[in-house]
């Protein structure tokens, strides 16, 4: 741009038009963000034994009718589904393993989200309520001591919640309490490009122009003749 200023006479309107164009693009691009269809994102979270996913294009438009495929950690496909009108798709935990949720939107857009197996623990270690899950060995069973211990545990279960029950209840309540936060996270997961991204990119290009000027100025045949 600067070299143009130096070398040309009739350059005023040209530069002005370029500046106006960039300013207009910045305004249009950053103020109204109906959708930006070059990037899709998927965000998945676990609530109890169900996994919810939310898919959208950057800029916030929901990815409707997009395919969501769930793989286990070995790459086997576990299930497949389509997002609804709000870009949501939910499914029961198919298997206790690391899950890879892949969103395949149209036109070569794809995104994925990993759910580590630890996130699935909450409800799926379902033991029947109120039972003591410690295994009772046949030999140990014969000893009076062990039997007494089991009985005491059963009696206690009537009055108090067993640790497992407690955990289940807490998990359920927490899931409910955290749901709005999860949703908020899903909402805020992705922003379109920010002003600093755009300005940074333009800065890079100007820098590269400088490099190109230096390189081309080394080639004698390219020197600008006055």
């Amino acid at each position: 741009m600067f070299t143009v200023l130096r070398h040309d006479r009739c350059v005023g309107p040209y530069v002005r038009a370029a500046v106006v164009f960039f300013a207009a693009v910045l305004c249009v691009g950053l103020s109204s963000q109906p959708a930006l269809a070059h990037k899709v994102t998927i965000f998945a979270w676990v609530e109890g034994d169900t996994i919810y996913t939310q898919s959208k294009f950057s800029g916030g438009r929901r990815a409707k009718n997009a395919t969501v495929v769930v793989y286990d950690k070995d790459g086997w496909q576990l299930l497949e589904g389509k997002t609804d009108q709000k870009g949501m798709f939910s499914f029961k935990v198919p298997k206790k393993t690391d899950l890879r949720v892949v969103l395949k939107a149209s036109m070569g857009h794809q995104a994925e989200w990993h759910i580590p197996v630890e996130d699935l623990v909450s409800e799926s270690e379902d033991t029947a309520p109120g039972t003591v899950s410690e295994p009772v060995h046949p030999q140990a069973d014969t000893s009076v001591d062990a039997r007494a211990r089991v009985e005491v545990a059963h009696e206690r279960a009537g009055a108090f919640l067993s640790p497992q029950d407690m955990e289940r209840v807490i998990n359920r309540v927490l899931d409910k309490k955290l749901e709005p936060i999860q949703r908020m996270l899903a909402e805020s997961m992705d922003h379109g490009p920010t002003v600093s991204d755009v300005v940074g990119g333009l800065g890079y290009i100007i820098g590269l122009m400088g490099v190109a000027m230096i390189v081309t100025s080394r080639r004698p045949k390219d020197r600008i003749r006055d």
Binding site: A18, F22, V25, A37, L208, A212
Partner: peptide, 15 residues
């Protein structure tokens, strides 16, 4: 070339 590269870069923001 640089200016048009910049134009291409920001044009993708115009949806």
């Amino acid at each position: 070339t640089g200016i048009l590269s910049a134009a291409f870069f920001v044009a993708s923001l115009v949806h």
